[in-house]
Each structure stands twice: as structure tokens, then as C-alpha cells.
Amino acid sequence: MILLAIDCAASLCAASVYDAGAGRELGRSVRDLGKGHAEHLMAVIDEALAEAGVGYAELGLVAVSTGPGSFTGVRVGVSAVRGLSLALKIPAVGVTTLEALAAETRAALGPRTVLAALDAGRGEIHAALYDENGAALREPAVLTLAESAALAVPGQVALAGTAAQLIADAVGVAKPFEFGPMVATADIGTYAMLAAAKEPGERPKPVYLRAPDAKPQAGFVLPREERK
């Protein structure tokens, strides 16, 4: 089966075409945008498909990073994959940024428990804890730094994500932690690999752990004029 995986959860706009049967990537395209994922995503997908020599009709699955991450980026990615799933009549799966970062940590360090954590600002950390096989011991949630540090047992838990060093400093022990990637999102190939092992179920949904920063400006709504 050939699958297409995309990631717009952070600054990258990335796509990977992956042969699940052979366990290898056929093509990819990655742009470091920061913003503007919606304007570039379809071109990125076309570039990955062209490199792989694969057309849309040959895809058997589509996959997407569901966050946590950029509110807008996650929405763009999930909407695109759901649209492709409907148009091509193929299943879609979601992979969270935290499980992907934990998978890369295990790939680099070997089987171990991983606390994947992203600095969300405002004193909040988006974190999840995974065992040595990738099963979630604690699902993605908004935690304080103190709550995150309580999960980070030195010598037993490796750390990954943009909040990894913050957590290690908060624990403040002499024995150093092991670290995985200290970034906001994993390599697009990791999302493709994880997606290939998932059983399709419900359509992917964004993992929004807090409300978006933008709020409707209700104060600017004009009062309705009553008819006489």
C-alpha cells in the first residue's frame, strides 16, 4: 500500500509518499515556512508525488499530524487530508506530534519511556508520556512545568520536544537526562512510518489542547435596528 503523509503542525510544510509494504519512503517535499501552509501545501504534496513517481489514484491511505502545534497549521493539514480522503475514497489516519517525537526518541536511544513535551507559552506545556513500545501512559494534556517535571524520572524517562530542557532544569538533579529531538515536530518520514502501522478508524481530528488565541470581536457588532 502506498500512503501520503503530511505535516503542517509547526513551521514545516511537509509531505511524504511511503510504501508501507516495503517500509521505505518513495518521495518527499519539505518547506520551512513558519506561516502560509494553506498556500503551499498542495504544491508540496505534488512535489512529493512527482519525486515518488506516484499519482493520487495509486494512494491507499492519507495521514496527517494532528497536533498539538500551530492552531492554524493543524487545521490546514487535517482539513486537507479529510478532503483527500473523501475525494479519493480512501481512509485517513492521524498521528500526534507528541507520539511522533517519542518514536524518534526510541529510534535514536532504543526502547524506553519517553516524555514528549512542547512549550506552549503562558507557563503551559503540552505533554504526553509513552512507554517503551509507544503506548500512551498519559494522553496529550496541558500541564504546568511542575506537573511535567513530576513525570520526568531521571534514569527512567527520556525527554523530547521543545520543553525538554525546561523540564530537565526544573527537575534539577545531578544525573543527566537522555534527550530525543528537542524540536516542535518530527521528521515527515516518522509520521508516514507510524501511519502505516495504524488501523484506520474515525477521521482525523485536530488535537487542540487549548482554545485559539484569536477571539471574535463581539464589541464591534452593530446593534440591530428595530423596525417601527
Rank of each mutant, 00 (worst) to 15 (best):
A149L: 04
A174E: 15
D7A: 09
P154C: 05
R138A: 14
G123I: 11
G60K: 02
H40E: 15
L49H: 02
R112D: 12
I125V: 15
L41P: 09
E58H: 05
A63Y: 08
T105G: 05
A14Q: 01
A196V: 13
G180Q: 06
G69Q: 05
G201V: 11
Y191G: 03
K198I: 13
A48M: 06
G201F: 11
G110A: 04
L115F: 10
M42G: 00
L159V: 12
D32Y: 13
L4A: 03
L3I: 12
E58G: 09
K215P: 06
A127H: 03
E199G: 03
V142N: 08
L4D: 02
I188C: 05
G60R: 03
E199Y: 07
D169R: 07
V54W: 04
L4Q: 02
M182R: 15
I167K: 01
V64T: 08
G34N: 03
A102E: 03
P204H: 05
A15K: 00
G67Y: 05
P216R: 03
A197E: 15
V81E: 00
R138N: 04
L194H: 03
G123E: 09
V173A: 06
V30N: 02
V183F: 11
C13E: 00
L194E: 02
R31Y: 08
T105M: 08
A100Q: 04
L159K: 02
E25P: 03
G23W: 13
A22I: 10
I2A: 00
E47Q: 11
A184Q: 11
S79L: 14
L26R: 12
G83N: 08
H40W: 09
P176V: 00
L151F: 09
C13A: 02
L101D: 04
A135Q: 14
D131G: 10
D46Y: 04
L115G: 02
A22C: 10
I125W: 06
D213S: 09
L159Y: 06
V62P: 10
M182I: 12
E178T: 09
A52R: 02
A136C: 13
K228W: 14
D119N: 14
A163V: 05
R224G: 01
I125C: 08
G69M: 08
T105W: 07
S65L: 07
G180P: 14
A43S: 14
D32H: 14
L41F: 08
A196L: 10
R28G: 00
G219W: 06
A48W: 05
K175S: 15
R138E: 13
Q156I: 13
A184I: 07
V81H: 01
V157M: 05
A197V: 10
G219P: 03
D19K: 00
A163K: 00
L222P: 00
M193G: 01
L166D: 07
L118T: 05
G121H: 11
G55M: 04
I6F: 10
A80R: 06
D131Q: 12
L59A: 01
L209M: 11
L59V: 04
M182L: 13
F177M: 09
E25M: 14
A92P: 13
L143Y: 11
A120T: 02
P176C: 01
A38R: 08
K228R: 15
L159A: 04
A43F: 09
L59R: 00
L109C: 10
A196T: 11
G36E: 13
V74K: 01
R82S: 11
G69A: 10
L194I: 10
